[in-house]
Design a protein around this nucleic acid. Structure first.
Lengths: 201, 201, 201, 201
DNA sequence: GACTAAGCGAGACGGTACGTCGCGTCTTAAA
DNA sequence: TTTAAGACGCGACGTACCGTCTCGCTTAGTC
């Protein structure tokens, strides 16, 4: 009967009372705080509503699910990340890049959200699209940039299979984070980057 | 204040009426069927009880949670896998091994369960231990074996960093399965194995 | 702290843009349509707004509640009723009068609205006043007229307790409509009127 | 999928854990208290749950709706009423009977519940059946008894139309309670009973 | 052969959270 | 000032599962 509204947070036409920006921030702040302790598991729409002093309905008006909400909170953080520094040796740059990445994983928010959302990526297409387009694509582009510069600088061979190289770098990190549970230390990053450089030379 | 029951499936003292073996099978069969469609998301203790004609209590007597149950269903399948064949070139053997692995992932049950459980691994230590000891360790041992044989056969250099090699093989596969969502084709396996062989030579 | 608006449908001061008469009709038409199927139970301000293409605010500017709105829709119908015919025997006239009344009850709108509003009469004084002054008083006056004419014509005794007579006529009808649920047939009306005539002679 | 369970409060087969009688009482007590102030309007399942310290689900397990619940609370009271006394003149007996009835209506609970439920009788067949079979039928039978005894005693004529007599007695009372809002005094009862006796003689 | 300790099915129960409906008020921009 | 549009806080809804409990009945081995 009633047409389903599709824009959950996205830009809407300028009719009716505009959304209160403050409301959105309050929601996301509460979300972050709850995520930090408790992770996605401990996140409930009811809880966010209570903590942010916002009505449950208002939250549902803007996000489809608590997973969407968690992703939004994640995005806020990701988008504030400083751009990559393309300086010095490729190996050094990669080390720095992934070093920062694993320290992000260690942080309450980032690691918990990613771990908490993985299972839902397989089930919720919208969520997966959001995560891949807004978080993953960015990271992949950054590292691809570093690798390409490595080729230009002659540190990597020109015919390097970039796609596989990307998988070889990101794969083991997520594998340790999610599956094997083994430590994500900078020593490990060093060995990993070393191996990929060796392969790519 | 009642003492917590500790043996959830493990052997219990031989007093009273012994457990009906058939009951356990019925439960696991229902679990598998539900997992096949709907994945871990669609799995509920209530549903399993209904489908298997078993009382909820009976299920809780044997497993701590639906995640445990899913893992148990997974194990049944894993334990029935034939042993690895150590024949021919290392590259060929690895190709065969991971080829079978991704075809497992494609199967309803296996892929769904793994995807559905990842998020819980971070939260449920028992579950993580079970998964790592019973599923992962086995796979890692098998591949380590293949790699070691490759060293013996002179196809891989003796000082190869085995730990990293393992990460380089499993990582990208799980990464694609869980994170990037990109296709897990045999062509991809071929390129991946090729890259690792190149690195290890 | 804004002063409460008092004129809900009544005449307002002639400043600013005057109300669109068409708007009011559209609202009442939508209301009638919704009432016809679904009754007061199915009536919602939200629904009326959607169906009439009018904003919720506009409705609230004119009526206090959905019950008020239902009453307004009822009044439109009631006010269009033709006046009573004072012809022939009193018994015949009463039969005709109440015959028309129960056929009104059978109609979707009328019966449903009355049944739907009764419970609110006890709670909403405004509503009760409206209903009694605009609907009930009219009917009572009409029947009182018929009875008085009966007295003048010598068909009823002069010392008849008119108040009780009115109760004896209306009471059983509403009782069947609302409480006992027994059939409101013209045969019943005949017996009822007969009984009251017998009592009043 | 799951077979709907039909017995809401009624007798169930003796499987599973039996219902806690105390729970039911707690629920009904809370219901009565809430009904007394606030009537059916102020009655919410949530409120009853809170007040009785019982889980909402438990309430829904036993009653289909808050209206059902209100009816149940009413029944408890009704069933405790003492039987009618068949003594003295019929007119006196009727006066006594209906006198007690209107004093019941004045009571918080009874009047409020009846007024609150009327509108729902038209919509909820189950509810209507319950109310008519358990409350109304009983009252009608009692009064019918009184009238029949009046016939036997020669105070009423043998060919009296009992059905209409019943309507003539109950009708005006409910009419005043629900529709006209006029006072339900014992003087009124006296005039009403007088009128019906006059008609029935 | 009865006793007894569990197994087992059934379902009650308290609980948490869900996602939705409708309310009545508000804040915009356009008319 | 009216109007359409829609945000917002709010209260309640009825449902899904959770994990625990309390029944009655069954099924072994042990005394």
């Amino acid at each position: 009967m009633k047409a389903k509204r599709l824009f959950h947070d996205s830009q809407r036409p300028g009719r009716g009372r505009p959304r209160q920006a403050a409301t959105g921030h309050a929601i996301l702040r509460a979300t972050r705080e709850i995520l930090a302790r408790g992770g996605v598991h401990g996140l409930t729409v009811e809880g966010v509503a209570a903590r942010s002093g916002v009505a449950k309905t208002t939250i549902y008006r803007r996000w489809r699910s608590k997973e969407d909400l968690a992703l939004a909170a994640l995005l806020e953080v990701v988008q504030r990340e400083p751009p990559v520094r393309h300086l010095g040796h490729t190996r050094t740059a990669l080390n720095a890049y992934f070093g920062r990445m694993i320290s992000n994983f260690q942080s309450r928010l980032y690691g918990r959200v990613v771990r908490g959302l993985v299972s839902d990526l397989a089930v919720d297409r919208e969520l997966a699209r959001g995560f891949r387009e807004q978080v993953l694509a960015r990271r992949v582009a950054e590292v691809t940039g570093l690798l390409q510069r490595g080729i230009e600088r002659g540190e990597l061979r020109p015919d390097l299979d970039l796609e596989i190289a990307i998988d070889l770098l990101f794969g083991p990190i997520y594998y340790r984070l999610l599956i094997s549970g083994e430590a994500l230390t900078s020593a490990f990053i060093d060995r990993l980057v070393g191996a990929v450089m060796a392969y790519g030379r």
